[in-house]
Design a protein around this nucleic acid. Sequence first.
DNA 1: TCAAGTCCGACCATCCAAGTCGCAGATTAG
DNA 2: CTAATCTGCGACTTGGATGGTCGGACTTGA
Lengths: 133, 133
Amino acid sequence: MIRLSRKADYGLVALKALGGLPEGDSLSARELAERFHLPQDLTPKVMAKLVTAGMVEASMGKMGGYRLARDPADITVAEVVRILDGEQHIAPCQQGDLMGECSRLEGCEIKSPLDTLNAAVMNVLETMTLAQL
Amino acid sequence: MIRLSRKADYGLVALKALGGLPEGDSLSARELAERFHLPQDLTPKVMAKLVTAGMVEASMGKMGGYRLARDPADITVAEVVRILDGEQHIAPCQQGDLMGECSRLEGCEIKSPLDTLNAAVMNVLETMTLAQL
DNA sequence: TCAAGTCCGACCATCCAAGTCGCAGATTAG
DNA sequence: CTAATCTGCGACTTGGATGGTCGGACTTGA
């Protein structure tokens, strides 16, 4: 099943905060953690992933901090989840290159319904943007 | 965020299998595990939870096994998730009895959007029944 | 220049779910 | 009655996620 971890929560909270900032302003990891009760030492790590993904820009030095690099209306929840929780392998059967063999196993026939469920959940996450939160 | 564990997967697969059974038939934990590649020793535990929840009936002894106790069209995915993954505390702020104080914290104001997201996901799970899988 | 404040990366500790093992209780086949 | 087979229940091990610590690099302001 799709795995939605806590890091996704932190990331969404932080992104939402950055999205509500005036143009040019930025927030440091410490400020984000204090204001929104995120784990002090985990916040920089979450932000770092968002930076390397190109969703957030970071400026170093005193007066440094993070600011959103893209339009909040263009950022989907699914994208954030993918960045922070890793790629969601919806069909674990397809590990390796033996897809043909896999499809004949009895187990996979009953697992396809789970894919339907996953698709439905992912559809919600794909549809919802940061601006809509 | 909502936590969807692997046990929910196993439970749904097993329930789906039981739902497709002729009236009066049953499947043992070993059979379920072998046919659908579920962990051998974990399957009885998952089923036990479903039994105590009244969703599945178990008969002991030789020739024993599990059979569905309710109509598949009346079992929602959300209910299965609640049974196997525990109650989803959508608002972790409400721990303790100081709800009034909590609502004044700055962090909770930004967390309410996450509730919207949770509600959207839960809505999908509430809507989808076992029969629809 | 210097000091303060920030991001960045690697490493270690802790916690919890996943999975395993073993034994007791219950029921049926022979 | 006996043996086989199943569920039921607890304790144990393990692996991944979570959270914390430390040192290094960079930028700003005095």
